[in-house]
Design a protein around this nucleic acid. Structure first.
Length: 319
DNA sequence: AACCAGCTCAACCGCGTCAGG
DNA sequence: GCCTGACGCGGTTGAGCTGGT
């Protein structure tokens, strides 16, 4: 009764994605939205399994993804949340806008785990923990976290039921990431674009998604050793056509320039994710704007001693 | 310059869950 | 209630990169 691997069919490509494949995938999702992954390989002609497409999208191409250096605060949040939630990377990722669960998992496994271990061994000789007061080995702090989590869950549920009631749905858009753990991801969407802003929204988030590819392409164009072949050019040109039909400004001379102007990657920075996105049900990336992130950070990062007083009223404001 | 060990991270694999029939 | 297929998640792998010798 062994389940056959989903991708062991002949002709299914494995390994790293090429920029062309990325473009095809993004182009498709831009038109049809994420979801129904089973249909993606069939409809796009990509020689990838549906799982691979979904993974590529969620971990790499999705709009608003931030890559590279984790900030101190992000690091602390991961440590705190890992202590609280365990290896539930998706849940942890819900608290870190612009980070994917895979990214966080990798960061934890390659860096934070070692760091904490080091810290633990260095402090184990001493009777108390150092200034980096992680809750990993602190049952009391963990208990407080659990209480807070329960409060949060309760309020999240309340907010959810309020949000689902039609007359309130427009005003209650401050969803907690926790809801994604307790309802489903689709309910996560909050800032529904109005019909007036939808067109603008679509192109904005499309650009945001394209930024990811553009960054990829930038490196690819630079490093591409023996020139791109005709196929590449063809695919990219097709994409240009598709992009231009979407009303996105197209550059002129070279392909690389086209993409540069098309996506404006030089202007890229994480702040561009402040646009509402077309991909509302993939809105992990927008949590920062959905809820007052600084408040959440405060809640997460404050020393455990004094925060309880502040929390309940402040958290209530979140919902 | 060549080799090697360690590290990083994108991608894969397999299992669990859930919805639809 | 059972079966099946799709999806999501966490663990693991391995190719490529980097720094040291």
């Amino acid at each position: 009764m062994v389940r056959p691997p989903c991708c062991d069919k002949e002709g299914v490509k494995k390994g790293p994605w090429t920029p062309e494949e990325d473009i095809i995938l993004v182009s498709y999702i831009q038109q049809h939205g994420p979801g129904n992954w089973k249909a993606v390989p069939t409809n796009t002609g990509l020689l990838r399994c549906s799982k691979s497409c979904r993974l590529r999208w969620t971990n790499y191409l999705r709009p608003g993804i931030k890559r590279g250096n984790f900030t101190d605060q992000e690091e602390k949040m991961i440590i705190h949340l890992q202590a609280l939630l365990g290896n539930r990377w998706a849940a942890i990722a819900a608290y870190l806008p612009q980070r994917t669960d895979n990214d966080i998992k990798n960061y934890w496994n390659t860096y934070l785990k070692k760091k904490l271990k080091k810290l633990e061994t260095s402090t184990s000789s001493e009777s108390c923990l150092g200034h980096e007061d992680f809750s990993v080995s602190q049952p009391t702090a963990r208990g407080q976290w659990e209480r807070r989590l329960q409060t949060n869950i309760h309020m999240a549920k309340k907010a959810l039921s309020e949000a689902l009631s039609p007359e309130k749905s427009t005003s209650s858009n401050l969803f907690s990431p926790l809801e994604s753990s307790f309802s489903n991801e689709a309910s996560f969407c909050s800032t529904k674009p109005t019909s007036q802003t939808q067109t603008q929204t679509q192109s904005l988030c499309y650009a945001s998604s394209a930024d990811n590819i553009a960054r990829l392409l930038k490196g690819w164009m630079k490093n591409k050793p023996k020139g791109s072949n005709g196929n590449n050019t063809k695919v990219i040109q097709n994409y240009e056509t598709s992009a231009s039909s979407e009303g996105i400004e197209k550059g002129s001379s070279t392909i690389s320039e086209n993409f540069e102007s098309l996506f404006g990657y030089d202007d890229f920075d994480s702040s561009n994710s402040d646009s509402t996105t077309l991909f509302q049900d993939e809105s992990k990336a927008e949590i920062g704007e959905i809820m007052p992130f600084s408040l959440l950070e405060k809640w997460l990062l404050d020393d455990s001693g004094c925060q309880e007083k502040v929390n309940l009223s402040e958290i209530n404001c979140m919902f």
